[in-house]
Amino acid sequence: MKLLSNYKYWIINFFGWILFSLFMLTIDKITYVQDASINKLYYLLSEGVLCGLLGFVLSFVILYFIENHFNIGNYSKVDVYKLIAVVVLTQFIYHGLLWPMLSIPAFHFLNEHIDLTILQKLTNVPHFLVYFVVWLFVVLTFKLVYYINTIKVKQLELEANLKEAQLNTLKGQINPHFMFNSLNNIRGLMLEDADIARDMLTNLSETLRYSLTKSELNSISLEDELEMVENYIEISKIQFEDRLQFEMKTDEDALNEQIPPMIIQMLIENALKHGISNIKSGGKVHLSTLIIDRQLQIKVTNSGTLQKNENSTRLGIKNIEKRLELLYGKNATFTLEEINNTVVATIKMPIV
């Protein structure tokens, strides 16, 4: 933020210098001047106003240097030395102009001339230097706070952009992963039953159309996701036939809640690939969605056991975990556990 082009700064700076000088000079002197005449009071007021005006004008020199040659976020020792030199220069100018200026109200109100020795003038230097030190401290503090806030905003923007890029990367993994498994299933059916393979391709095209349009979004309604899951189950039943039993229990109050697209489909796909497909007699997959304590709970239970497969990339599981982390942070959880020869995958996410 450029203070030089901010009219509010000039207004505050002007009255700040005047009031500060009146407080430091006029009020201070009045407290120990006894039986002061009205002319003496006029002179003291004039002295405070003139000192404030002179400080206001010379503060422009320092501020001009700060805003054009002093980077508050990346300064060197040389820059600090230059800033000190500029402040010292303004002090020479200040004291060079101050006493001739004060002679005018002194002669007008007191009929006196200010005739101070060099030593007397030098003893006033620390007093007037305080004015500029206070002003400089306020300006640098303001600029530092503004710089820190700017850095925070940029950091939040970078984090948001990074999160969006990571989400897009993860969503880009969904379609190839899903298509690869589905095409493998179709390939296995081509020589066995061309009609069934054709029906499977039709269902696959509908599913892919859905995934391509919805995966661009960060969230969709649970109802839309469940429709996609039902279509995916129909595709899978062509492969598994009677080996697959699917049940779904849905809380109607949760149908309009927003969830990451295709996250349930990936749970179902994982249950079929690593659970049902490894059981000769097949098994059951049960999907339930309900709201508990202001959280949406999605649970997929399938027959089978948790098996460690070194050749498995666990792409689907990693994808789910990372997307939940990016979208909800610690407010969402994902667990995968084995309970009584069944594998239970549970997602809990806050209701938005």
Results as ranks from 00 to 15, higher is better:
residue 278 N to R: 15
residue 274 H to W: 07
residue 342 T to Y: 06
residue 200 M to T: 05
residue 346 T to A: 05
residue 256 N to L: 11
residue 211 S to A: 10
residue 162 L to D: 10
residue 40 K to R: 12
residue 337 E to N: 14
residue 147 Y to H: 07
residue 250 T to N: 08
residue 352 V to G: 15
residue 198 R to V: 13
residue 93 I to G: 02
residue 171 K to Y: 10
residue 214 K to R: 12
residue 86 V to F: 04
residue 65 F to R: 02
residue 326 L to H: 14
residue 103 S to A: 10
residue 266 M to H: 15
residue 200 M to D: 03
residue 270 N to F: 00
residue 324 L to C: 00
residue 97 L to Q: 01
residue 41 L to N: 09
residue 304 G to R: 05
residue 22 L to K: 00
residue 117 T to N: 13
residue 53 L to D: 03
residue 188 G to S: 11
residue 117 T to F: 11
residue 303 S to W: 04
residue 175 N to Y: 07
residue 287 L to V: 03
residue 282 G to F: 01
residue 335 T to W: 05
residue 291 I to M: 09
residue 201 L to K: 11
residue 343 V to F: 04
residue 241 E to H: 05
residue 134 V to L: 15
residue 292 I to S: 15
residue 203 N to P: 01
residue 121 K to I: 12
residue 85 A to G: 10
residue 136 L to V: 10
residue 293 D to F: 08
residue 297 Q to I: 15
residue 228 M to F: 15
residue 298 I to S: 04
residue 321 E to S: 13
residue 339 I to N: 08
residue 312 S to I: 04
residue 346 T to V: 13
residue 236 S to I: 06
residue 88 V to G: 03
residue 140 L to Y: 02
residue 340 N to P: 07
residue 161 N to I: 05
residue 189 L to H: 09
residue 39 N to W: 02
residue 76 S to F: 06
residue 173 Q to K: 08
residue 300 V to G: 05
residue 184 N to R: 08
residue 140 L to E: 01
residue 117 T to A: 12
residue 131 Y to G: 14
residue 16 G to R: 01
residue 245 Q to V: 14
residue 49 V to C: 12
residue 192 E to F: 14
residue 151 I to C: 02
residue 67 E to I: 00
residue 19 L to P: 13
residue 70 F to P: 04
residue 276 I to Y: 08
residue 222 L to N: 13
residue 57 V to F: 13
residue 74 N to Y: 03
residue 114 I to A: 10
residue 159 E to A: 15
residue 90 T to M: 02
residue 179 M to S: 02
residue 173 Q to F: 03
residue 183 L to D: 01
residue 31 T to E: 11
residue 130 V to E: 08
residue 114 I to G: 10
residue 38 I to A: 08
residue 121 K to S: 10
residue 352 V to S: 15
residue 97 L to W: 03
residue 33 V to K: 13
residue 95 H to S: 10
residue 66 I to Y: 02
residue 250 T to L: 14
residue 230 E to L: 14
residue 282 G to V: 06
residue 63 L to E: 00
residue 165 A to V: 05
residue 293 D to H: 13
residue 261 P to V: 05
residue 143 K to G: 02
residue 163 K to T: 09
residue 5 S to R: 12
residue 222 L to T: 09
residue 121 K to A: 08
residue 113 H to F: 07
residue 269 E to H: 09
residue 34 Q to H: 12
residue 200 M to W: 07
residue 172 G to E: 04
